[in-house]
Design a protein around this nucleic acid. Structure first.
Length: 442
RNA sequence: GUGGCUGUAGCUCAGUUGGUUAGAGCGCCAGAUUGUGGAUCUGGAAGUCGCGGGUUCAAGUCCCGUCAGUCACCCCA
């Protein structure tokens, strides 16, 4: 007996069985479709980059999380931890071929060596889209529309996109003389929903070094609630005299107004002045998206505006705005909500292979259906009909096609609707038509 | 990276103060039913008790380490 190797996967890395894999591919197809519908073009970049390309772009945390090693040629390399930094490199390298404004989407796997949790993996797929080369608020607003349409197309009804603008908080912090402590303040503020107002104030005073009056002023702003228009109206006097803060408010005002005119339901869009998250490079509008039915999984689609995407790689200034759908996190939420279809076959039709000497005919009918756009599997073994129907049932086939010598003689097929439990006899000439109608009704 | 909880069959779990051959339900396979699934009945296969070490006459059970999952911190998709 040879020593068996234990079949196992690494922490944070997962296998996909057919049912979740099909759900995953379905979402990828929807993402591509929605992005393309807005005119975003596909690109791709390597999984591996020179480490210096990736280091220091997402803050210290992401540096620590890099999967990094020396390749066979002695190069210091690392696996990408997001799609934005590689895009910055890509944009700097190919700017002359792209022209601006440039809109791209990119579906790709990324790797982060952090601790795992439900919906947090070390390998996961992001579905990014960005518009670069423009500072126009129209791009920020369109980003909002894309996020909304994407989630709606996936089939969600109850979700909220929370929007904020870094300029608002930066403007306030500027006014209060807290500009130097921005990142500490934002980090504390971000816990508002979790630990409450008093704890946040305490943390800002103790850990960040703000005075309690400063902290209170920040919380007064961040705690504003109500409709976007209400909040913005209350925000204005608080930021008076801060050009950046006022700009942030006016951009938000335009965003909420345009988004509403464009037809996005108001309940799916919120102004949340307390959200501050997002990587360090965000400078303007920021977005986070939560599912009403599983908020604990965290944001499933986040992004924002940045002043200068590729400043480390080129002198050309490239402002932009975009967002990223966390596909595997979304999938974990769907799984949790029991919304993964249990069918594990992409074909609706199983051709029962029942008479060995008629193999060619079974294969022929399979090709006939495929030519008409109907996915069909011919069972690979000539076994009992009952066995094959059981297989069809378990795998989630919609229809079984059965024919033996009698049917072949008369040019007919038994079409068994496995969901309804009904069986009808159909002439081969009418088969495609019949199935198309049956499947359309499903 | 730090801390808490968890880890027994494919899945969900039981397993008495450590005590002989580790159980159940569901699922799977075969048959009842060699041209008809989901039901029922009968039978069957399947477990390195996550892995490694230690204590003990004896470890699924106690101790240590490790791997994995999960939760919190941190950060984020």
């Amino acid at each position: 007996m040879s020593q068996l190797i234990k079949a196992q996967t690494l922490k944070g890395f997962r296998d996909y069985l057919p049912a979740p894999a099909m759900a995953r591919e379905r979402i990828m197809e929807i993402a591509r479709r929605v992005y393309r519908s807005y005119g975003f073009s596909p690109i791709d970049t390597p999984a591996l980059e020179y480490t210096e390309i990736l280091l220091g772009k997402g803050g210290d945390e992401s540096d620590k999380q890099l999967f990094r090693f020396t390749d066979q040629g002695g190069r210091d390399v690392a696996m990408r931890f997001d799609l934005t930094v590689p895009f910055a490199r890509f944009a700097a390298q190919h700017l002359n071929d792209l022209g601006t404004p440039f809109k791209r989407y990119h579906l790709g796997t990324v790797w982060r060596g952090e601790n795992t949790q439900r919906g947090r993996y070390r390998e996961f797929m992001q579905c990014d889209f960005d518009t670069i080369g423009t500072e126009s608020n129209a791009a920020d607003i369109e980003t909002m529309l894309v996020i909304h349409d994407l989630l709606a197309a996936i089939g969600f009804e109850r979700f909220s996109v929370r929007v904020n603008n870094r300029l608002v908080l930066n403007g306030l912090l500027d006014k209060l003389g807290l500009a130097e402590k921005t990142s500490g303040i934002l980090r504390s503020l971000d816990k508002l929903h979790k630990i409450g107002r008093d704890a946040v104030v305490a943390e800002m005073v103790e850990r960040v070094g703000a005075t309690s009056e400063q902290a209170t002023r920040v919380l007064d702003l961040a705690s504003l609630s109500g409709s976007p228009a209400d909040i913005l109206t209350k925000l204005e006097p608080m930021l008076a005299g801060s050009p950046l803060g006022e700009l942030g408010v006016s951009r938000l005002r335009e965003l909420f107004s345009a988004v509403s005119t464009a037809g996005i339901p108001a309940e799916r869009v919120r102004l949340d002045v307390s959200i501050a998250r997002g990587l360090d490079y965000y400078t303007g509008t920021i977005y986070e998206t939560f599912l009403a039915d599983d908020p604990s999984i965290g944001s499933i689609c986040s992004g924002g505006r940045y002043d200068n995407l590729a400043g480390l790689f080129t002198n050309q200034k490239l402002p932009g705005v975009g967002a990223s759908l966390g596909l595997d996190r979304l999938l974990a939420a769907l799984e949790n909500l029991g919304q993964i279809d249990s069918a594990s076959t992409p074909a609706p039709v199983l051709v029962v292979y029942f008479q060995p000497e008629r193999l060619g005919d079974y294969l022929r009918i399979g090709r006939l259906l495929r030519a008409a756009g109907i996915n069909a599997e011919v069972f690979p073994e000539s076994k009992g009909v009952g066995k094959q129907l059981k297989y069809a049932d378990r795998k989630g086939f919609r229809v079984a096609l059965i024919a033996g010598e009698d049917e072949f003689q008369s040019g007919q097929w038994q079409v068994k609707d496995l969901k309804a439990g009904q069986q009808t006899t159909v002439a081969e000439a009418d088969l495609v038509d019949h199935l198309q109608k049956l499947l359309a009704g499903a």
